[in-house]
Design a protein around this nucleic acid. Sequence first.
DNA 1: AAATGTGAAGAGGTTCACAGCG
DNA 2: CGCTGTGAACCTCTTCACATTT
Lengths: 213, 213
Amino acid sequence: MIDPAIPRLYAYHRALLEAAAAGKSTITSGDLAALLGHTISSTQIRKDLSSLGPLGRRGQGYAINPLAEQLAWVLGLEHEWRIAIAGFGYLGHALATFITSRESRFCVAAIFDRSPSLIGVDWQGITVADIDSMEHDIQRAGCNIGVIAVPAPAAQAIAQRMAAAGIRAILNFAPTVLDVRVPVLVRNIDLAGELSMLTHWLTAADANAEAEA
Amino acid sequence: MIDPAIPRLYAYHRALLEAAAAGKSTITSGDLAALLGHTISSTQIRKDLSSLGPLGRRGQGYAINPLAEQLAWVLGLEHEWRIAIAGFGYLGHALATFITSRESRFCVAAIFDRSPSLIGVDWQGITVADIDSMEHDIQRAGCNIGVIAVPAPAAQAIAQRMAAAGIRAILNFAPTVLDVRVPVLVRNIDLAGELSMLTHWLTAADANAEAEA
DNA sequence: AAATGTGAAGAGGTTCACAGCG
DNA sequence: CGCTGTGAACCTCTTCACATTT
């Protein structure tokens, strides 16, 4: 399965759960597209789904439950994922809450910070630990996904320590390029970059408006 | 200028400021690529930059300061941007801090929440206001960018009200497709989707490892 | 008749190879 | 000689059109 399709598959999965909750048991690619606000075309949906196997019935549409299960399987949502969060400031805290509420099989299993005022704090049964003990705690908690929510200068070292502790996938919110030599998947969430797209678009729109006037 | 190039331009800009701070006054596309951890090729960098005009000297490289200024101009970093944040939970709080610290011309100018325990709270001179007065406050504060950090069910209504108040660019952290009919640029930050890429990749890697064994 | 599944065409962006300057 | 700037080849993903199945 191709890379850019994965977030789409996840969107389908969510939409299918919604449809199922609304009492439907079958859905067409067109209905699914409508549910997603037509941000994705029905053709695209069919291409994505057909690449997983013959999941629909011609003339009828897709049976929701089997399709949702298939998507959950492909996306790895059937495993339980144990997540380690480094940095428990506002961002880390927000992510912990979000992750826990979002998907029942995502489980925050370890939290780290450097600040003495946070170490020892309890969050939903998890004690915030000192970053110095990270390797040990990550392995004991059996974490397989890491989230980096620390300031940029500290991120690189933490990424390397996470990788050393056996974590193979990292979601990085620090605005730095992480260099982990081991084969680890790093996804960067570049908030400032996203903002810059907005500011660029707004200035470009202004320039166009002036040119037309 | 093409869309996917914008975050790259922003990355160049950051790297150039770093290089300037390190005392350099000139840089080649290859050096810049190295500074970015080779996540972007030197060819790509030259293509991106050349589309802005002839900014480099053949045989020498790029003069850092003029180039950084040009990038800042293209990205709209020379304007002052006034940002309205809806939702002041941990996420909203984290974003406010991040935005303020990140770029001096990004200014959080209004904060909204629905919770009585947050309304009236002061954050760096800004008073958290009731979401009911959003339109009025946004206009008074002259906000031109909106950030949505509220739970999914509330996001749609807030997006529409932001658009009605004249905001034309929105960064949305709620896992919902926003439908604003006015021409507004919406960027969705899909945290769950990003996580799903990690879980997919990890399960696919496991499946491959088993297949090889 | 209605909706899926799919080869072929198309668009969009990246890489290559090298011409053009300093 | 070194590095930029760029047309052309390339590749990847999306859209189109339609054959296929219930």
